[in-house]
């Protein structure tokens, strides 16, 4: 089998070591540039030899990503990257596998594969760039586009209700769910690193700007002033706070429902202290995204442990080999009923 035999000492890398020689072909000003840079920057800190890292993508603007990473890379078929990554992990559990996808690739054509890679808890890090539009095909609405939005394919406004990527991931049983923003390089780096270290399927939604077809779709978390009231930084073990320094707002839980309060109005200890290992809390928080009354949560929403699909299979295999030895084809062929003709 291919499992690495010894622990390799990874060289000391810099960001440059992860930049490929291919020309980057995104539109000038696209949010993907910042994401690329943040990911290249976070790679040296992973402590993984470059040759053991694989980026797999589907189709779409985001999915050009592997070409620009100086690692092993595979730009595959629309929506299918999770399936290809699963096969790769089965064959090569020694590799660190990233999946790069978008809102159309991951939640529309590839929605089925995304469900199953998350529920199986295959050890891959999934980065979904959500710009709420189809960029590469020139501006149709996507499964995350808000209801009523006018796009090329919905000149009278879209009639679809959008999917919330976080509730989707939580709903199918993902074990690590997070969100970050393309305009916040430091936060992206932190989240990508945490996701990469998670054992099992890690799902990260990266809010991304498509300045050509859906500019400033995430302005609420871009604009310096808007952001104050609209971005909620989620931190494990800390109260959920946002708003201006001099008039902080916080979340409290009323029954199962979160509510925004002025911090100064509530007693100490009344605020919702976030626990990222609590799937109930994660669901409640993820739902806020769809509600304009609430800020948009950003950070790690869920981080729990569960059996990793390929590890379970490999353990079964090891046990079978330990119990009865490695299979031998000559023995297999002559097993059961046989007879000899002289």
């Amino acid at each position: 089998m291919s499992e690495a035999t010894g622990v390799k000492e990874p060289p000391r890398y810099t960001k440059k070591d992860f930049e490929s020689d291919q020309d980057v072909r995104w539109c000038p000003g696209c949010g993907d540039y910042a994401i690329l840079s943040a990911i290249q920057k976070s790679m040296p800190d992973l402590g993984i030899p470059r040759e053991d890292i694989v980026f797999i993508s589907g189709i779409g603007c985001s999915s050009r990503f592997p070409y620009y990473m100086n690692t092993y890379g595979f730009h595959t078929i629309h929506g299918r990257a999770p399936a290809i990554a699963t096969g790769l992990r089965l064959a090569r559990p020694d590799l660190k596998v990233f999946v790069v996808t978008g809102d159309g690739d991951g939640l529309s054509i590839g929605g089925n594969h995304l469900i199953h890679v998350l529920r199986r808890n295959v050890n891959v890090t999934i980065l979904l760039f959500n710009n709420k539009v189809y960029g590469l095909t020139k501006g149709q609405y996507s499964p995350t586009t808000e209801f009523g939005k006018m796009t090329k394919s919905t000149p009278f406004g879209s009639a679809d209700r959008p999917v919330n990527p976080l509730t989707f991931a939580l709903g199918v049983g993902a074990t690590f769910v997070a969100r970050t923003v393309d305009r916040n390089v430091a936060h992206m780096e932190e989240i990508v690193k945490r996701a990469a270290h998670h054992k099992g399927a890690a799902f990260v939604e990266i809010l991304q700007n498509c300045n050509v077809y859906n500019d400033l779709a995430w302005n609420a978390v871009y604009d310096r002033e808007l952001k104050v009231m609209h971005e909620l930084r989620v931190q494990h073990g800390k109260p959920l706070l946002f708003g201006p320094i001099d008039d902080r707002r916080g979340l409290v839980l009323e029954g199962s429902k979160p509510k925004v309060v002025r911090v100064k109005d509530v007693a100490e200890g009344a605020l919702w202290v976030y626990d990222e290992t609590d799937p109930w809390a994660a669901q409640a928080l993820a739902l806020l995204t769809s509600d304009p009354e609430f800020p948009i949560p950003v950070g790690v929403l869920l981080n729990v442990e569960a059996p990793v699909y390929e590890e379970v299979l490999i353990d079964q295999e090891k046990k079978a080999v330990a119990d009865r030895g490695v299979g031998d084809v000559a023995e297999l062929l002559t097993s059961g009923d046989t007879w000899r003709i002289p």
């Binding site: 291919s2 490929s20 470059r50 040759e51 694989v54 592997p66 100086n70 595979f74 595959t76």
Partner: peptide, 12 residues
């Protein structure tokens, strides 16, 4: 993949 120095990207 895992072979040092031969990192490359392929696709459709």
């Amino acid at each position: 993949p895992g072979t040092p120095g031969l990192e490359h990207q392929i696709g459709g």
